[in-house]
Amino acid sequence: MSQQRNRTHRTRLAAAAAALTGLLLAACAGPADMEPPEVDVPTPLPAGIDFSPEVTASVPDDSCDPLASFAPGAVTADQARAQLDNDGQISIGISQSTNLLGYRDPVTNSLAGFDIDIARAVATALLGEDPNIKWVPMTSNQREDSLKEDRVDLVVRSMSINCGRWENIDFSAEYYRAGQRLLVTKDSGIEGVADLTADHTVCTGAGSTSGGNIAAANDKAQQVTVPDFNDCLMLLQQGTVDAISTDDTILAGMAVQDPTLEIVGEAFSVESYGIGVQKDNTDLTRFVNAALEDLIADGTWANSYGDWLEEPLGTAATAPTAVYRD
């Protein structure tokens, strides 16, 4: 009997020991028996990037003569000023983030660029030396609404004149003629839009007309859209895309930031920049057109073009000739 009891005792001890070991093991079970995690290579992408945007080739809109604005006539600065929201101050919608056109320099904090020069010259003509200008930075898709909703008097922000926009706002005469081209790395071998193959990706801004223009010029290239075209430059530098396509003025602003990039090919679209004016502020539009004629005539236009765009674009240019409807 005592032997038996001894045995049961030993069994119990063994059971207790086993239970304790089990507890300890449970506490220690850790990463040792886990498969190593698998992680995709992280590729930083901008928010809202679309690798398969819906693009339809753009067709020319002949429903109106978009470039025909209102002739300056004999309108006076007083008459034009009467149509400003705030007599003595003009509010102008611009970009602060488009290099060479409208850009806020982070070091000097000054606002500068071709669009800014034009806007400043027009404001000076309207309000006199050292005009009181309220600069209103906006995104490209805020341009029409800000005029329609009376938030700004003028928009000078690389805005192409077209018939669709004429329905909502008025335009000045054309003050610059840009065209869509390609920005690529110098060793890419791409020399124009025709060289793009189905293996190439082209970056454009979402909601812009650039995508439709590429599709019209080359329907093989894969398009990638981003909400802000500035993201395209980073994607090109990181090798995520092979080319950027938008107005050559904007491409010039990117090209000057990186000596390994170049603008190639002939322009495959016509982008006529005009100053946006609120609908029916016709006197203001007429006065702006007069001011544009003056700043072209007195060399302001040529100076500004020389300061900002001539070298990056590699060509001399002359101001477009104004066309009027009346």
């Binding site: 930083p44 901008p46 928010a47 290099n99 982070p106 500035n230 993201d231 930031q257």
Partner: peptide, 20 residues
């Protein structure tokens, strides 16, 4: 670095970093 050089694309990189 781009910011020091005064190149606007720096802002894009900063936004990109924040997006990540």
């Amino acid at each position: 670095t781009f910011n020091r050089l005064g190149e606007p694309v720096g802002a894009t990189y900063q936004e990109q970093a924040s997006t990540l």
